[in-house]
Design a binder for these strands. Structure first.
Length: 283
DNA sequence: GCCATATGGAAAG
DNA sequence: TTTCCCTATGGCA
């Protein structure tokens, strides 16, 4: 259930665990059988993320693919809301349920069964084999990604050019890519921005500060494997168990704002739940 | 253990 | 605008 941070993290893990290896690919569920066949027996040579999209580059096992060479074939994955990767070492477990794709390392001469690596993927919204041009086509639909160190100018320009609310725009992947519902709510709170402010009314320096803020937060989350947006000084007081102190307003409807105590407000915007503090984020 | 909910987006209608 | 994908988590019994 990833926002951009989790996708970038997964890309790194897959690169580390399976990168450079020849893999078997299968679709126990059957729904990706044709695609898996195209990848079966090829080598994973690249693992990259852009926004919430994951791209795995594959090349024939014998081909010399250097850092500059473009893999001829890519697996494009978008996990959507339910999708998930599960990785492991050793003998992969018997496939259970709707297993869309299984990748298993196939190195000749490996005696140690623990050196077998596998990766299972379930429930993705998108899972397809595409050409390099196909990758470009998908990337062209995406706005700048804070985790890639992109130039934020196009994002600022898009936001400043419309009356659409800032809360809606932060979720539009063609405006800024990688943010999801948690970062939307938390970044707006940290900026003390009202979610319904029209994009054109938000000053460019404020938009740039928000960009810088999520860049740092998301980078931390890639390392940590978990989204924490509260500053340490604000991480106090009674709260739900577990991750209850990680956020300022996300999923805290009706609970007191960590800063001012006002009950956190909620509304549905473009079919997604929105959370904000009506006092700290005054109109 | 059961049940409601959801960090998303594409396809269908 | 609604439906689908069909997993994982957290709260509660």
């Amino acid at each position: 259930m990833p926002e951009g941070n989790a996708v970038h993290r997964t890309a790194g893990i897959l690169q580390r665990e399976l990168g450079g290896r020849v893999l078997s690919a299968s679709s126990p569920q059957g729904r990706f059988a044709a695609g898996a066949e195209l990848l079966d027996g090829t080598r994973l040579v690249r693992s990259e993320a852009r926004g919430k999209h994951l791209f795995l580059g594959f090349a024939p096992p014998g081909a010399a693919v250097g850092p500059e060479d473009e893999p001829p074939r890519w697996l494009h994955v978008h996990l959507g809301l339910y999708g998930t990767w599960t990785l492991g070492t050793g003998e992969p477990p018997e496939p259970v349920g709707a297993l869309r794709l299984r990748l298993v390392s196939l190195e000749d001469g490996l005696d140690d069964p623990d050196e077998v690596r596998w990766a299972d993927m379930r429930g993705p919204t998108a899972c397809e084999v595409v050409t390099p041009e196909g990758v470009d086509l998908i990337a062209a639909r995406l706005g700048p990604d804070p985790l890639l160190g992109d130039d934020p100018a196009p994002y600022v320009e898009r936001v400043r050019g419309t009356r659409t609310t800032i809360a809606a725009l932060l979720m539009h992947q063609d405006v800024i890519s990688g943010l999801g519902n948690i970062y939307r709510a938390e970044a707006l709170f940290r900026a003390r921005l009202h979610p319904y402010a029209p994009g054109r009314d938000v000053p460019a320096p404020v938009l740039l500060a928000l960009w810088d803020d999520v860049s740092v937060l998301m980078r931390e989350a890639v390392e940590r494997g978990r989204i924490v947006t509260t500053d340490p000084a604000d991480r106090h007081g009674p709260g739900p168990k577990g991750r209850g102190l990680d956020h300022y307003v996300y999923r805290r409807a009706g609970l007191p704002c960590r800063i001012c105590g006002t009950p956190v407000a909620t509304a549905v915007l473009e079919a997604r739940n929105l959370f904000w503090c009506p006092r700290c984020q005054a109109a």
